[in-house]
Design a protein around this nucleic acid. Sequence first.
DNA 1: ATTAAAATTTAAGTATGCTTAAATATGTGC
DNA 2: GCACATATTTAAGCATACTTAAATTTTAAT
Lengths: 220, 220
Amino acid sequence: MANYSSIAVENFIKAIYKYESRDGADTKSGTIATELGITHAAATDMARKLAAKNMVDYEKYKELKLTPAGKKLAVHVVRKHRLWETFLHQVFGLSMHEIHKEAELLEHATSDFLLDKISEYLGNPQFDPHGDPIPTKEGKVETSQASLSMVYAELNTSYKICRLRSSDEEFFDFCQANDMRLGTALTIKKRYPKTRMLEAELNHKTLLIHYDLAQAIHVE
Amino acid sequence: MANYSSIAVENFIKAIYKYESRDGADTKSGTIATELGITHAAATDMARKLAAKNMVDYEKYKELKLTPAGKKLAVHVVRKHRLWETFLHQVFGLSMHEIHKEAELLEHATSDFLLDKISEYLGNPQFDPHGDPIPTKEGKVETSQASLSMVYAELNTSYKICRLRSSDEEFFDFCQANDMRLGTALTIKKRYPKTRMLEAELNHKTLLIHYDLAQAIHVE
DNA sequence: ATTAAAATTTAAGTATGCTTAAATATGTGC
DNA sequence: GCACATATTTAAGCATACTTAAATTTTAAT
Ligand SMILES: [Mn+2]
Ligand SMILES: [Mn+2]
Ligand SMILES: [Mn+2]
Ligand SMILES: [Mn+2]
């Protein structure tokens, strides 16, 4: 009972981790509830249970914070998730929008033993197909990457795409149609804040991209 | 709610299927309980729930029987199980005793979409590494195989090993040490019923094999 | 500083999948 | 056919992970 975590717990901890390691960093129970598609009441409930298990620091009405034990679990599940995404993409040729959903299930059904085999088979990759770092077996996560969403990038500066953070089919349709991949060079030419659009130049073309979509495109 | 089955339900249905398709064919609730490592009370409980869902025919004190819907689910989960075993063995080189435990988890975390990819990748194999038939996508299972446990094989008749039905490490150690694989020829020379041993000749050697171990070795 | 809106927690209840203990039915030996 | 051992079911209860509805706190607007 001490060592095993349920699927619900793994997903909950992972959701906190996701929002903790973000610019906005909003880890209120409501955010987590929305992320997981459960009610606020259920999220509060789980937060208290995980606080009792020393996985989460919880004070009423405050943001949820992972304890070292919680963070360790989160990173471990993220490692499983990203290794599966890499595997599904490389070995079965699943497309970028398909891998996330499958990895979301497989991450909870993978022993540490099997995880090692997957990692070895892939040559211990450091990044998943989205460009996100794969935590090491020891739990280290590449944080040096000074990536930022292209929404916040400087004008008239040459960048390269380093992450495509989405699991939406339409998003990747758009990327493919415009030859936007990891490594593709681009420059932001102009911003239209009212309509929330950016004018970007890439592959000798000019594109108008809405902030909502640009959000998922990280550059460095 | 109609279409999704929990892990507990999938394992329960699969356990009934396993014992239904056996010589002894004992599918009393106690047998299933022991197979799954739960109490008899829990098994009875589940049997009644599944009867309400039309997956199992259940009459008090009688054997559990799968309905067509139950059998369909069982075969589908078995397909997932055996494809994963095949995949783990062929792609990651997991040994015979390791594949079962991993497949037992992965079978519940695999979409039909992913299952197709796995099957395709392997060239739609018909048998898993144990020699058990892999049900087709349409739910057909190769039943023609006139295999029987070597315990019941005739004396002085040449057979070939067609199944090695175990997930025990020692069992496969023994098999490997004596070059017993799928396809290996053997002849039963003598039976010692009191000590429950068989004398078998294979690979120009004579072996004394206990019934308990021989049970898992099927020949044809 | 009030007050209304929004977010969060509490309370009560449900479904699932288990447990232990007691009651009941089945089956075997004689 | 009876009695006892064995198997199965019933009953009561528990943990997990949710729900809806009501109460409470925070926050943001005026
Ligand atoms: Mn993902
Ligand atoms: Mn998940
Ligand atoms: Mn198996
Ligand atoms: Mn299983």
